[in-house]
């Protein structure tokens, strides 16, 4: 780009990371409040899309060198593995467990296997959105 829109870049840098942080919050809040893997994933994806939109493809590719197809795959793998864990203890596929543990700093915290499962969903959603958009965008050039 010939005249780099400085203002856009500055704002994007700040806003994108605020959105990313918020998406992480939404993801973790998911079990008890609105949010979760889908919503967190979509929001992270839109933050990244914003980055791609305001900077050019090459720059961001240098910064975020992910292969999104692999992100999808690892997300799926994570979700399936979470489901399989229960099977080793004689429970049906995808049985989720939870319990409360006293952790340092956080205090009494609920830990659940639904969280890694949700993380798998999160990864798939992020991977999918960016994969589609980037593939189409790269084909332009």
């Amino acid at each position: 780009m010939r005249n780099t829109p400085v203002q856009l870049h500055v704002i994007t840098r700040i806003v994108a990371f605020i959105i990313l942080a918020f998406s992480v919050f939404l993801f973790f809040a998911g079990h008890n409040n609105p949010g979760g893997g889908f919503i967190g994933g979509l929001m992270s994806a839109s933050a990244l899309v914003l980055l791609y939109l305001s900077f050019d493809l090459k720059t961001i590719k240098r910064v975020i060198p992910f292969n999104y197809a692999k992100v999808i795959a690892s997300g799926l793998l994570l979700a399936i593995l979470t489901g399989i864990v229960g099977m080793f203890f004689g429970f049906p596929f995808l049985t989720q467990f939870f319990d409360y543990f006293p952790l340092p700093i956080l205090g009494e915290t609920e830990l659940t296997t639904a969280l890694p499962f949700d993380l798998g969903i999160y990864l798939v959603v992020v991977g999918f959105t960016l994969l589609v958009i980037l593939t189409v965008a790269e084909d332009d050039n």
């Binding site: 998911g30 079990h31 008890n32 409040n33 609105p34 949010g35 979760g36 893997g37 889908f38 489901g83 596929f93 995808l94 989720q96 939870f98 609920e110 659940t112 639904a114 499962f117 949700d118 969903i121």
Partner: peptide, 17 residues
């Protein structure tokens, strides 16, 4: 399922598959 957000609990736990 230890969750307060019923929709999310249905998604990740009851109807996980």
């Amino acid at each position: 399922a230890g969750g307060n957000n019923i929709v999310n609990v249905i998604l990740v736990d009851f109807r996980g598959l």
